[in-house]
């Protein structure tokens, strides 16, 4: 770690860049000689003055390489670097959303207080029953119906004879008329071909043969 320069050293630093030892005034020489000897000053002066063109030839002859950077391609979202404050804002927004969704519980610590157990109910269960059916009991007289079968006993006497049908075949009540067997009830409705007038429509061949 370099220590900071005092005023004399600051002045010498300034003169080293501009004057060689012989160009210094007597007072300046005296001040320089308090810090370093003449050879040391002169050598440092030479080092600074000779450094100016140390790489002059290389720098002049050097060829700058053509740039190969696609500026437009760098603006695509996924390959673009983002400032750190974007990330911080994104994280802060995420945390805020988390707190907004779920409020954090607050813990209060009382160092000198007494310990109490406090029951906290975070869930209240309400059971509600709706009675929509009413049962009413009514007294009603009961009627009993009895069916009683009674046996009837018929007593037949020996003289009783159930009445039978009359002898209907021997003594019919009506007269049945039978149809005449010689009468043709379904006469034939056909004619002979010679009597049929439509035969004129039939070919003559039938007729001439």
């Amino acid at each position: 770690m370099d220590k900071h320069l005092n005023e004399s050293e600051k002045l010498i630093q300034q003169w080293l860049e501009t004057k060689d030892f012989e160009s210094l005034s007597d007072n300046e020489k005296a001040l320089v000689l308090n810090i370093m000897d003449k050879n040391e000053y002169q050598l440092q002066y030479k080092i600074i003055s000779e450094s100016a063109d140390l790489y002059e030839n290389e720098s002049i002859n050097a060829v700058v390489p053509p740039i190969q950077v696609d500026v437009s391609g760098s603006s695509t979202f996924w390959f673009k670097s983002h400032p750190i404050y974007h990330t911080i804002l994104a994280v802060a927004a995420t945390v805020l959303i988390m707190f907004w969704i779920k409020t954090p519980s607050v813990f209060v610590i009382k160092p000198n207080g007494t310990t109490q157990f406090i029951t906290q109910h975070d869930t209240i269960e309400i059971i509600k029953e709706i009675m929509d059916t009413v049962i009413i009991e009514k007294e009603k007289p009961i009627y009993l119906e009895k069916i009683k079968y009674v046996d009837n006993t018929i007593e037949y006497s020996n003289n009783y004879c159930p009445q039978q049908q009359e002898d209907r075949l021997l003594e019919p009540g009506i007269t049945i008329t039978l149809p005449d067997s010689k009468f043709n009830s379904n006469p034939t409705k056909t004619n002979a071909i010679k009597d049929d007038p439509t035969t004129s429509l039939v070919f003559n061949i039938l007729l001439t043969d």
Binding site: D2, H4, L5, E9, Q13, L16, Q44, I47, I48
Partner: peptide, 13 residues
């Protein structure tokens, strides 16, 4: 900066 310049030159010398 001045300090570093001073000590850099001194180191080289």
């Amino acid at each position: 900066v001045k300090s570093r310049l001073f000590y850099a030159t001194k180191t080289i010398s």
